[in-house]
Amino acid sequence: MSNENGGNATANTQGGGAPSVNVLAQYVKDLSFENPGAPASLAPREQGPELTINVNVGAKPLSETEIEVDLKLEARALSGSEVLFAAEVIYSGLFRIMNVPEEHIHPFVLIECPRILFPFARQIVADVTRNGGFPPLMIDPIDFVALYQQNMAREQVGAPN
Rank of each mutant, 00 (worst) to 15 (best):
Q14E: 11
G15W: 06
G17R: 04
G17W: 02
A18S: 04
A18P: 01
P19K: 01
P19D: 00
V21G: 05
N22R: 13
Q26P: 05
K29R: 06
S32N: 05
S32C: 02
S32L: 05
E34L: 14
P36A: 11
P36I: 12
G37Y: 06
G37D: 06
A38W: 06
S41I: 11
P44A: 00
R45L: 09
E46Y: 03
E46P: 04
P49H: 01
L51Q: 03
T52I: 08
N54V: 00
N56I: 10
N56R: 11
V57N: 06
G58P: 08
A59Y: 01
E64S: 08
T65W: 00
T65V: 05
E66Q: 12
E66V: 11
E68W: 07
V69C: 02
V69E: 02
L73M: 15
L78A: 15
S79P: 00
G80R: 13
V83A: 13
F85A: 14
F85K: 14
A87C: 14
A87V: 14
E88C: 11
E88V: 10
V89K: 02
V89Q: 05
I90T: 15
Y91G: 04
Y91H: 06
G93P: 08
L94S: 08
F95P: 01
R96K: 13
R96P: 02
M98W: 01
V100D: 03
P101L: 12
E103H: 15
E103P: 14
H104P: 09
R115G: 10
I116K: 00
I116G: 00
I116R: 01
L117E: 01
F120Y: 12
A121W: 07
A121D: 08
A121E: 08
Q123T: 14
V125A: 06
T129M: 09
N131P: 08
G133W: 08
L137Q: 13
M138W: 10
